[in-house]
Design a binder for these strands. Sequence first.
DNA 1: CCCCCTTTGAAGGAA
DNA 2: TTCCTTCAAAGGGGG
Length: 270
Amino acid sequence: MYKETVYSAFNLLMHYPPPAGAGQHPSPQPPLHSKASQSPHGVPQLSPLYEHFSSPHPTPAPADISQKQVHRPLQTPDLSGFYSLTSGSMGQLPHTVSWFTHPSLMLGSSVPGHPAAIPHPAIVPPSGKQELQPYDRSLKTQAESKAEKEAKKPTIKKPLNAFMLYMKEMRAKVIAECTLKESAAINQILGRRWHALSREEQAKYYELARKERQLHMQLYPGWSARDNYGKKKRRSREKHQESTTDPGSPKKCRARFGLNQQTDWCGPCR
DNA sequence: CCCCCTTTGAAGGAA
DNA sequence: TTCCTTCAAAGGGGG
């Protein structure tokens, strides 16, 4: 059933491409959920994409989809459109960064008892593991059961941003080139390469990320990034404090030295 | 077993 | 409006 929702959302997007000019600027796209009105590049923000989901398309607006999307009629997936989008209009991005393969958006059937029921990769149990066999439930209080039920609620992951999509695509290549395996080191390289990309090249990923966010919002209308706060164990605040000797990340370093985050290199961190 | 590291960007809350 | 915090992915390292 979820698949149909994905296909529907996908078809929706195919019918309602980004506004004219979208994707021509590599600047981050306007937040779909909110608030900021200016991109880090200083490029005027595009209008919210919700506008493109209004009539005349018969598909209900996001607010209408809430809680009722599973009842939407099945739509035939338009795979030709999908492939043309990912390998054509979106450049040479591999399918690994497509909506259908991106774990946070790749949906499986979650219909209970359905023979083909496959858990949704984006909706993962908090532990990421299968549940153990229940022990004596009679020993649990109602409050405990409630708390446990709450804790076991599946997690809907955040949609990937442009850089995350870029990382997903380029990681294997960097690993092959550098024979490195540590993700921290790989990510540093990817961060530098990201800044070395032209705006046109980055635009592909910003556009893809925008569509990811849009589809995510379609699929989970009431979802908030805040929902996942606290689900990860975080390191102590003390460790987050910057030391005077450690230059920190290039981002922080640029901020400290008053450099442009988008165009300036951070010498000490390079 | 599970958190840390490391990156950028999005989002939300506080000031 | 600005600043800060958290979380998305990834997988080796280390407690």
